[in-house]
Design a protein around this nucleic acid. Structure first.
Length: 293
DNA sequence: CCGCGGGCCTGAGAGC
DNA sequence: TGCTCTCAGGCCCGCG
């Protein structure tokens, strides 16, 4: 479900409730999300203080006072809800009752900040994992990730080098988290339309024969950075179920140029084309066949 | 090594 | 109303 802008929105919502706060209570409502929880998952969290809450690609990373990192991923359908009221406002009065929480509230944190945080994930493609901060460079889920698209390391030279020689399409290359980390189906479609590049174009064409960036590459990099920044500013995109942790909806979905807009006019200035939907590696791609070349 | 397709899950919505 | 079918913002794994 969530891509980088939605995860960043969630991070900003969780940070005030988690940073500097201790896990007073941790409840798992079933033994697994994507994978089984380790037996000592709850014990390793309880009593720990969150030093800081960061993000890498689509992963949330909470630094704990124990020296461990709590990694959290939302998968396709995950969301967090923060409740600052209710019985959590009475210190020591927290008693977990299953009826307090909805279906698919799989993990609940009661923080010393007074906030109750529930992780909800109907499809359970999300995950949580603990590992030692010192071993973060060896963490398999993070090790192969490409650069952050909003960071300085992501530029035309880097993207051209990563795509040089790739047999696959632009669409697939940009979805590949080892090329650039954090894009998903929506923002790849949006960035390609903004930069007028066809999703079917070969990724290798972003580099010239010498390996330098093709002239189309810098505008693509700019479009990726711009669409992500715009979406973060809008609080992410709310399709179906994504909400900010406060329950508010993000509103970037109103700014989609192509995603889920099959048949509508291409928004590119002066372009007479209509948005088309095709399937690439099993996923919907929305683009304008007229202006995206 | 690379690229693709299947699989993991549940729920919403369309069509009959 | 209710059934069946398709599709969904992600990512891992096995196959060729």
């Amino acid at each position: 479900m969530p891509e980088l802008p939605e995860v960043e929105t969630v991070r900003r919502g969780l940070a005030p409730a988690m940073e500097g706060a201790r896990f007073d209570e941790v409840v798992t409502h079933r033994g697994d999300l994507r994978w089984p929880f380790p037996k000592d998952f709850v014990a390793r969290l309880k009593g720990q203080t969150v030093i800081g809450l960061g993000r890498r690609a689509k992963y949330l990373l909470a630094d704990l006072s124990s020296g461990e990192v709590l990694l959290m991923h939302l998968g396709m359908s995950g969301s967090f809800r923060v409740d600052r009221d209710g019985e959590a406002t009475t210190p020591g009065a927290f008693h977990y009752r299953r009826s307090d929480f909805g279906a698919h509230d799989h993990v609940v944190f009661r923080m010393s900040s007074g906030a109750t945080i529930a992780f909800n994930d109907p499809r359970r493609f999300g995950c949580m994992k603990l590992f030692a901060r010192q071993a973060i460079d060896d963490e398999p889920l993070l090790r192969e990730l490409g650069p952050e698209p909003l960071g300085n390391a992501f530029d035309a030279a880097m993207l051209a080098a990563a795509c040089a020689g790739k047999k696959t399409s632009m669409k697939a290359a940009l979805l590949d988290q080892s090329v650039v980390a954090g894009l998903g189906n929506i923002y790849v479609c949006e960035a390609l339309n903004r930069s007028r590049i066809s999703p079917r174009r070969k990724a290798a064409t972003l580099a010239t024969r010498s390996g330098a960036p093709h002239e189309r590459t810098p505008p693509l990099v700019d479009a990726i950075k711009a669409v992500l920044a715009d979406a973060i500013e809008a609080g992410g995109s709310s399709l179906r179920d994504h909400r900010q942790t406060s329950g508010e909806l993000g509103y970037f979905q109103h700014s989609f140029r192509v995603y889920d807009r099959e048949g509508e006019r291409c928004p590119t200035r002066g372009c007479p084309g209509a948005i088309k939907r095709i399937v690439q590696s099993g996923r919907s791609t929305f683009f304008c066949p007229v202006c995206q070349k």
